[in-house]
């Protein structure tokens, strides 16, 4: 899922400082699961903003709503009534949701979250990046451990010389992805696969400088 984190309250407050009536729109998708932009977080943020503004002598009126998904036009459409008479909208979705709202509505839309990465939950309150979304998966070659995003140099023929005691040179808290790959391949009896020189990656399916589009004709209508 998409992992996102709420921006500092002060930063969000500054974005809406000039507005009197603001809608706070949560998202029931990924950001609900990672506890940053679901119904609960939306209510808490709206309440915090009202209290802050009241204390500052500049009261704020809020409207709250949590969309099923902000990354889907169908659910974005349904927000029209909720936000029609507000001065601004704070979206608690990932960057995709914020953009879907801005594309659909003429209201001033601001983000409450920083969208971090595609990852999963490690323990309650800890999320970790696991997929670099490079568009050409090589996990079959690396024992199910992604060097694109888990190696700080995205090395395909690792590990580099900075790997020691299983840790990455950038931080003793960061696992060396290639140590993990080595151990996993050894355990699976496939070490010889690591002796193959992995050729340069075709990054055109990744961050090559343009927005990516995924088309599935088999599920298109009409």
């Amino acid at each position: 899922m998409i992992i996102a984190q709420q921006k500092p309250i002060q930063e969000i407050a500054e974005m809406i400082a000039e507005y009197k009536k603001v809608a706070f729109i949560g998202c029931a998708g990924c950001v609900t699961v990672c506890l940053s932009g679901g119904e609960k977080e939306t209510e808490i943020l709206a309440t915090a903003m009202r209290i802050k503004r009241k204390l500052e002598g500049n009261p704020l009126e809020t409207v709250t709503h949590t969309a099923t998904r902000q990354c889907d036009p169908e659910y974005v459409e349904a927000l029209e009534d909720v936000i029609k008479d507000v001065d601004a909208v704070v979206s608690l979705a990932c960057g995709v949701g914020v953009q879907y709202l801005a594309e659909r509505f003429d209201n001033w839309i601001v983000p409450a979250l920083n969208t971090n990465f595609a990852g999963g939950s490690r323990e309650h309150g800890v999320w970790e990046e696991n997929c670099g979304m490079c568009g050409n998966c090589i996990l079959d070659k690396t024992g199910g451990i992604c060097p694109i995003v888990r190696c700080s140099k995205s090395i395909l023929n690792g590990p580099c010389g900075g790997s020691q005691n299983g840790k990455c040179e950038i931080d003793k808290e960061v696992d060396c992805a290639w140590q993990l790959i080595y151990e996993r391949m050894k355990k699976m009896g496939k070490l010889e696969k690591l002796m193959e020189i992995e050729p340069p990656k075709d990054w055109s399916t990744s961050r090559d400088g343009g927005p990516r589009k995924s088309v599935r004709e088999d599920v298109m209508i009409g």
Binding site: S152, K153, S154, N157, I197, E198, P200, W203
Partner: peptide, 26 residues
Amino acid sequence: AGDHQRFGNHPGSKNVYDIDSMQLIY
């Protein structure tokens, strides 16, 4: 491969690693 930019005087820079040292050799 080169040291990670975190150690340098531009820690906020973006690293490239389009290819790795093994690939550069061949």
